[in-house]
Nucleic acid binder design. Structure first.
Lengths: 339, 339
DNA sequence: CCCATTCCCAAAAACGTTTTTGTTGATGTG
DNA sequence: CACATCAACAAAAACGTTTTTGGGAATGGG
């Protein structure tokens, strides 16, 4: 592995010009199939691999996709998004260059500038939870796809979880199990998930002819302790709900603790379903927490594939803003309502 | 932003040659400080930014660091490692290209090959938990630093957590709180952490003149359910321990559940400390779980900095294999032993 | 005052590809 | 048979830098 073999060595070995080698490998130009194949096998035999710096320089295609996210630590979501993106990229002969802003727009601009200097072909602009964003100016002029983020730009493709559908699925599951009095432990932040999940909750109730009851809805910070408090208050009500739909797994964990404090067994006395499918929590809880999964891996894949399509100019289809389905992951926290 | 300005535009604007521009910006060559400064300000004014593909092609320095890991999803550790690495890289004017093998060596080889084609300057070969690795052949010939991984290669730098020290710190904390009968809920896998943490447990006991007691040590899979079972068995013993040191947070969560089942309150009846500082769990548990943090962010930083030093040929210091300190993060799961 | 340094800077080559433009011999056409 | 067309390939230019080599003017020493 002392020195990588270049296109000229291949050309010499095959007895053709470098032009022919380049065309053979890229499928361009007009060559006889015979030479094309011969060159290919010679290249293979010499273990030739292109220098992407050189090819990118000339062809204006670096085969690098920039991935900028706001916050890569603190959540295990990032890993799945990245994994999906990377696997899809690999399938396209692309590779990911990642940059993290840590929620600092100065850092973000610097990171994007670095990506641009490296001539990334396009950028995935990702958030670690669904939110509305304003696109940084540095991104004008480069193909961009939004991931777990939405904006008012209709000229950009984006993918976010179907929040309303997720809540709806969760509620359907509880209703099918026989529950009619279902509490919602909601979130208080002004983010799309807050609105979407509440809407899904209400829609499912309406669909099944269940009246909406103010007293069955609370809003709190989406963390364990506030969730616990909210759940405790709700469970202390005279006509307590037989099931709780939680904004996310952390709140659900608080609900578990509240149930324990109230002496209620899950799922016999109380059913719980939530959103996140945060496996380390959901699997670890006793009993296992039934939860709606956010499609992080799939969003990662979709974003890359969409970007690839737009880069290919392929089927100059209009940009798409999609909301992705969120599947239910059943564990043991849901049962029929107590008699 | 229609067209990025190149070095020749800068040269023209400054009234010098491209050579001079290149030297001015890189600090090379011998130029008068006057021209150097003038060129710099002209470049700045024109908003010049180098094309890294071109500069890398000629200089053989792409300023890209490859990051290959075995498994980027499933754990939130990856994010912190990546964050540390990326921040350190940014400080060196480098950027990260990430590739994930998903534990598949074929995929790994392909990923490494892609990195090599992009002419990364060096590679961080990372694992998501401390383990011994055999270096893939593809990595011979490129500067490499191991992260959270150790090998028998003494010519490679590596950084891993100080497993024994971590266990020792945890034990010191319990012993200082007054505990003498301390159970260890260990792990069963054949990995460095298993050996190191057990060694740290024993060392701390010995240091404080506490006899090692077989019956206070169990080994189980490092997940919640097995941890719960192991803890239950241990707590059912006649002379039960007053504190538990857990291999990791998942087992600790099992211990919490076992304590609950046994009617023991934490920390009044039972103290618990573990290793991982897996915040989503540790913060969410009631009471908060005191845990030793694995220095993922710091390992990420160190690996990049070490790699940069080796790339610079800087202080041709020998490769270093270091074990990094793991700090204690106190929450509410430790108290004095019951009377 | 002449020659050798030294100080600045510019011209040209190089990096490894892709793309554009040329060239050659074969084939078809009227 | 002269000419246009075409297939198959090669030569050369180009991408935007960095590095190597060259060279003129100022400086210093004898």
């Amino acid at each position: 592995m002392s020195k990588r073999v270049g296109i000229r060595e291949v050309a010499a070995a095959a007895g053709v010009s470098v032009t022919t080698v380049s065309h053979s490998l890229s499928g361009g130009g007009q060559l006889s199939d015979a030479t094309r194949e011969r060159v290919k096998s010679v290249a293979e035999g010499l273990n030739y691999a292109p220098n992407r710096l050189a090819s990118g320089l000339r062809s204006k295609r670096s085969q690098i996709i920039g991935f900028v996210s706001d916050e890569i630590s603190t959540t295990p979501y990032a890993g799945n998004v990245l994994l999906g993106a990377q696997e899809a990229a690999a399938a396209n002969d692309q590779v990911l260059m990642v940059v993290n802003s840590n929620r600092n727009s100065k850092v973000e601009d610097l990171g994007i500038e670095a990506l641009l200097q490296h001539r990334v072909d396009g950028i995935i602009y990702a958030r670690m939870y669904h939110q509305a964003v304003e696109l940084p100016a540095a991104l004008s002029g480069i193909p961009t796809v939004l991931l777990d983020a939405s904006s008012d730009r209709t000229d950009l493709s984006s993918v976010v979880p179907d929040e309303e559908g997720a809540a709806h699925t969760a509620m359907e599951h509880l209703i099918e199990a026989g529950h009619r009095r279902i509490g919602y432990l909601g979130n208080i932040d002004d983010i799309p998930a807050t609105r979407g999940r509440l809407a899904g909750y209400r829609a499912a109730l309406t669909e099944h002819g269940i009246a909406f009851d103010e007293s069955l809805v609370t809003m709190s910070e989406s963390m364990t302790a506030p969730g616990r408090d909210a759940a405790s208050r709700m469970l202390a009500q005279p006509n307590r709900p037989t099931a709780l739909f939680c904004f996310n797994d952390r709140i659900a964990m608080g609900a578990y603790q509240a149930a324990q404090l109230a002496g209620l067994a899950i799922p016999n006395d109380l059913s719980i379903v939530s959103i996140d499918n945060f496996e380390v929590l959901a699997d670890a809880l006793l009993p296992g927490l039934t939860s709606i999964a956010l499609p992080h891996y799939e969003m990662g894949r979709w974003a890359i594939e969409r970007l690839a399509a737009e880069l290919a100019g392929d089927a100059e289809s209009a940009p798409q803003q999609i909301r992705m389905h969120c599947p239910l992951v059943q564990r043991q926290s849901v049962g029929p309502p107590p008699r």
